[in-house]
């Protein structure tokens, strides 16, 4: 697990994906090969926008840390990515403005490595309201 996580740190800690210069497609998680252009693809690493909006979402129940929200997010440059949205299930709605945050992904038991990475939260003023 350690080498696999270590290799992905750069892409998880920040929203760093890849871009095919040949067909102008973006990929997150990053891909080394463009599925559209194959060998003609020209892949480069790029930083993706840190804000976007919720296109669709689902709530996961019955797991550790649940309920939690998984959302399909359209970033400001129209790139779509799937991410956990750190908010309560009753707070999320389609079209909600969201932004990147740095959170824990999980940990390898009580004695193992802690995994960190990018999640999303409701943008300030859109869901971050005082609630009982």
């Amino acid at each position: 697990m350690i080498p696999r996580f270590w290799r992905k740190i750069k892409y998880r800690y920040s929203l760093r994906g890849t871009h095919c210069k040949n067909c102008n497609s973006y990929f997150y998680p990053p891909r080394d090969l463009c599925p559209n252009c194959r060998r003609k693809g020209i892949i480069e690493e790029v930083n993706l926008p840190t804000c976007g909006r919720v296109l669709s979402y689902t709530v996961v129940w019955g797991e550790k840390g649940s309920p939690y929200v998984i959302a399909l997010i359209e970033l400001e440059n129209k790139v779509k990515i799937l991410s956990q949205l750190a908010c309560r299930p009753e707070e999320v709605y389609d079209g909600m403005e969201v932004e990147c945050t740095f959170r824990k992904y999980g940990e390898d038991g009580d004695a193992g490595i802690i995994y960190y990475g990018t999640k999303f939260i409701p943008k300030r003023g859109d869901g971050y309201v005082s609630k009982e």
Binding site: G65, A86, T101, F102, R103, K104, Y105, I114, Y116
Partner: peptide, 16 residues
């Protein structure tokens, strides 16, 4: 803190 927040995540957010 939230379930998935700790000293490291809080430090990163403040520094960012």
């Amino acid at each position: 803190p939230d379930f998935d927040e700790d000293t490291a995540t809080i430090a990163v957010e403040a520094a960012r």
